[in-house]
């Protein structure tokens, strides 16, 4: 498992598992794949996590291809198994959107569906045995492989920032620049006295600004944290396999138990990400009427 130069120790094993396959510019000016965490961080911002991109985009393409195929043949008659399955998911998401989103926007339901299914598929990669894909990758000459895209903050921030941009866009569109500015500056402290109010404006802006910026951060870090911790535990359990037959057998039981529990986290985190997206967009669509 370990690449040349890295000792096969517990910490080395863990570090190896948490290292993305990073493509970027080496300090000497040549382009290539980073060997080790130090080299990867030296590449700076202009680097790509090839494994994250491969698995996330691959899964999205798989999901979109399947849904598109079913959607093209969708008929109003008696649905087949695939159509039934797709309709069941879409109905479930539609129900959630209708329950939490009071405005009228054709973007929200497809957005929620894409997020839910995509994140769910990415999270489910966590249930593949931790060593399986990296082992195959090593066999064909790829030194690092992190298979769960949602344990890479780049992926979760990518989605959360996408949602945040939409929140900002609809806030401006629905409330207007003035309404949005008022929302950020006239709450939560209010005063009838104009001089006091002027004093309150920067305080309100600070509080509401933090509130606004906390949204994408908490949105993405919640998903990332849960999945990262989950994978970390899988890696730690995998370490038990090298601790003799009894500890190894106990590890098998633990891995099974954690996988069962993790299914819940996988589903729940995808669902939470979707619901929060719907709620944030709903808040962006709400025009306050008390002004």
């Amino acid at each position: 498992m370990a690449v040349e130069g890295e000792a096969l120790t517990a910490s080395g094993y863990i570090r190896h598992h948490l290292q993305n396959l990073t493509f970027g510019q080496h300090p000497d000016g040549s382009w290539g794949i980073a060997h080790g965490a130090e080299e990867a961080s030296e590449m700076g911002f202009l680097a790509l996590h090839l494994d994250t991109l491969f698995f996330s985009i691959g899964l999205a393409v798989l999901f979109l291809w399947f849904f598109h195929k079913v959607g093209k043949q969708a008929s109003a008659g008696v649905p087949g198994a695939a159509q039934n399955f797709v309709e069941w998911i879409i109905d479930f998401i539609n129900e959630n959107v209708r329950g939490s989103f009071s405005g009228k926007n054709d973007l929200v339901a497809p957005l929620a569906a894409t997020l839910f299914i995509w994140i769910l598929l990415q999270n489910l990669m966590d249930l593949v045995p931790v060593d399986l894909i990296p082992w195959i990758a090593t066999a064909i000459g790829i030194p690092y492989m992190k298979v769960v895209p949602t344990t890479d903050p780049n992926a979760t921030f990518g989605m959360a920032i996408g949602v945040f941009i939409l929140v900002l866009y609809y806030s401006f569109k629905m409330k207007g620049a003035k309404g949005f500015a008022a929302e950020l500056t006239l709450h939560p402290f209010e005063s009838k006295n104009p001089f006091v109010m002027v004093l309150f404006v920067p305080i309100n802006l600070l509080l509401e600004g933090v509130n606004l910026l906390a949204k994408p951060v908490s949105h993405s870090l919640r998903l990332f944290g849960n999945l990262y911790a989950g994978e970390m535990i899988f890696i730690l359990i995998a370490l038990m396999y090298s601790g003799g037959i009894f500890i190894g057998a106990f590890g098998v039981v633990l891995q099974w138990a954690w996988a069962v529990f993790h299914v819940l986290i996988v589903l729940l985190q995808a669902f939470i990400f979707m619901v929060l997206t719907i709620v944030y967009l709903d808040m962006a669509h709400q025009v306050p009427d008390d002004h």
């Binding site: 948490l18 993305n20 990073t22 970027g24 990867a40 961080s41 590449m43 700076g44 911002f45 202009l46 680097a47 790509l48 996590h49 994250t52 991109l53 996330s56 985009i57 999205a60 979109l64 849904f67 598109h68 079913v70 959607g71 093209k72 969708a74 797709v86 309709e87 879409i90 054709d106 973007l107 339901a109 497809p110 957005l111 569906a113 894409t114 995509w118 890479d152 903050p153 780049n154 992926a155 921030f157 990518g158 989605m159 920032i161 996408g162």
Partner: peptide, 30 residues
């Protein structure tokens, strides 16, 4: 664990996927 260009690529692919879903998947199924 570094934030890098991956984020931007993810952001754009995310936008593309949502657009595709909205354009080609949602209408026929609905």
């Amino acid at each position: 664990m570094n934030i890098n260009l991956t984020l931007i690529v993810q952001l754009f692919s995310f936008a593309l996927f949502v657009w595709f879903c909205m354009k080609f998947i949602w209408p026929p199924i609905m």
